[in-house]
Amino acid sequence: MSFTTAFHKELLEQRRTRRFMIAIVVLVLFGMTSPLLAKMTPQIITMIPGGEAFSMLIPTPTINDAVAQYIKNITQFGVLLALVFGMGAVAVEKDKGTAAMTLSKPMTRWSFLLAKFAAMSVTFIIAVLVAAIACYYYTFFLFGELAIGAWLVLNGLVTLYLLLYAAITLFYSTLTRTQYVAIGLSFGTLILLGILGSLPGIGANFPDALISNASLIMMGETPKNWSGLWVSLGLIFLSLAGAWLVFRKQEL
C-alpha cells in the first residue's frame, strides 16, 4: 500500500528533522516543571521583592493546581508545536517540488496526506504519553497520587486537542504554497475557536470544552456535555477530507 511507504518516510522525517525529539523534550519538560511550579508558587512569590505582602493571600497549592498548570502548559506549547510542525507539511513540499516528484509515481494523494497526519499523531501521542508519565511522578512526589484512570483520560483528551490543530494546520498547508500563510490561518482559527469556546451557553460545544471536561474528570466529576468532543472529531475529519478534496485536483 502506498500509505505504508509514505508513512515510513514521514516517520523518518520526524526523526531526522529532530521534530520527534523536540516534541518529547518540550512536553516532558513541561510535564516535570508544571507540578514543581505549582508547588513552589508561594515560595517564588516571597522571593520577589515586595512579594512577601502577598504570600499570606496565596492558599497552599494543591494537587489540582499541579494538574491545572500541566493542562495549561501542555495545551499551549503542544498546539504551538502542532502549528509549527504542520505549517510546512504540504506547502513546502509543493513549493520545493518534492511533492511533484513523489506524486508523479504511483503514490495516491490521499496516502500522501494521511501519512503526514498519521506521523504527526504518532509524535504527539508518544510525546504526551512521556510527559504524562513524568508529570505523574513529579506530582506524586510533591502532592500525592493522581487517579490513574482519570489521568489517562485527561491526557487522551489533551492529545486529541493537539491533533485537532495538527489537522487544521495540515488543511491550510494544502491550500497554500507558503508555510507562513498556513500558520497564520491556523493561528486565526485557534483564536476564533478560543473565542467561540469562551462564549456563555454555546461555548461548551467547541474544542476548548475538551480541556474543561478533562479537568472536571480529574477532579472526580462527570462532565455532562460531550458535544465539544464530537465537534473536535468532526473538525479533524473535515480538515482531512477538505485537504484531500483540495489536494486531489491541485497542480503540482
Binding site: 522525517e13 531526522r16 511533484a100 508523479s104 509515481k105 504511483p106 503514490m107 495516491t108
Partner: peptide, 21 residues
C-alpha cells in the same frame, strides 16, 4: 484525477529531494 504511472519515469527540470535523506 491526475493518474499515477507505474510504467513511466519522470524527471522535472529542477528535481527536488528531501535534504535530510
Amino acid at each position: 484525477t491526475p493518474a499515477p504511472y507505474a510504467r513511466t519515469g519522470y524527471l522535472p527540470e529542477e528535481p527536488a529531494f528531501y535534504p535530510w535523506m
